[in-house]
Write a protein that binds this DNA or RNA. Structure first.
Lengths: 138, 138
DNA sequence: CTCTATGCAAATAATTTGCAAGCAC
DNA sequence: GTGCTTGCAAATTATTTGCATAGAG
């Protein structure tokens, strides 16, 4: 368990419980964003079964602490990925099979200034995902 | 009702029913993406009440025909906007009050090639939204 | 007339909330 | 001990499906 995560939890007054630890391990071992239901299913298989509600509550909490990113792919459910140790990045998803692939790029660093000037908002974050057809499905 | 919309409907074997027409008018009169529930509420006020189910079915159909864009702002529900007569664009939403503002820009045209080369996907679309704090809330 | 579309009821699916008991610190 | 956490049950919210009837072309 990375020290930075432990520190953030402590800073937020959060405890490192057994269910929480197991959930974080699942998230860390997942190279791609996963849904609450998937986290729950994997925990169940791994003999660390915890309630789905606990998964949701922890994901929300981790999101608030900035340890987890929400990823919305218009699937009717959210996905989540840990930030720790990962470059800021985006995703592409296949419209055929649902395959998700990481994109190691972000063209938006410069754009933020422009958006701020145009809207007078203070930009805090963004969501960017691509959709298309993977080599198998195209 | 724009001819291009009527043509697309006809091409798709869809009929121009009264409920559908009312729904399209609501969508066209909304400058920002709205939810199914909001469409439904506005129709009710406007003496053109139609069933929420009909709203959902029509939004799904219009999306398939490419007449409507889905907009996901991680709110737990989808928003929709008509394409007709509007430049391709994106949005920014305030994390305080939920205000949504159009962004008249898209930095991704060039990027698509890069993504395709990197992933071997055939890119068909993308979703990009910004989050931040509007002038009132910041 | 024929085939699409609608309303109503009901089913699903995702996510949230209330509360008493449990556990980390 | 004390306060954050969890599990279980139940509630909410969003969206979808089945089916008989209504309406557009």
């Amino acid at each position: 368990m990375p020290a930075s995560i432990l520190e953030s939890l402590k800073a937020g007054g959060k405890k490192l419980t057994k269910p929480r630890k197991a959930l974080l391990e699942i998230l860390e071992s997942s190279p791609l964003p996963i849904t609450a239901a998937e986290v729950h299913a994997r925990l169940r298989k791994g003999r660390h079964a915890i309630d789905l509600v606990t998964v949701y509550r922890n994901l929300a909490m981790l999101q608030e602490l900035g340890l987890v990113n929400p990823v919305g792919l218009h699937e009717g459910q959210m996905r989540y990925e840990v930030r720790h140790g990962r470059e800021h990045h985006h995703h592409i998803q296949c419209r055929g099979c649902g395959l998700i692939v990481d994109l190691l790029l972000c063209p938006l660093k410069k754009l933020t200034d422009l958006v701020e000037r145009q809207t007078k908002f203070a930009v805090e974050g963004h969501a960017l995902e691509f959709f298309g057809w993977c080599p198998q499905c195209r």
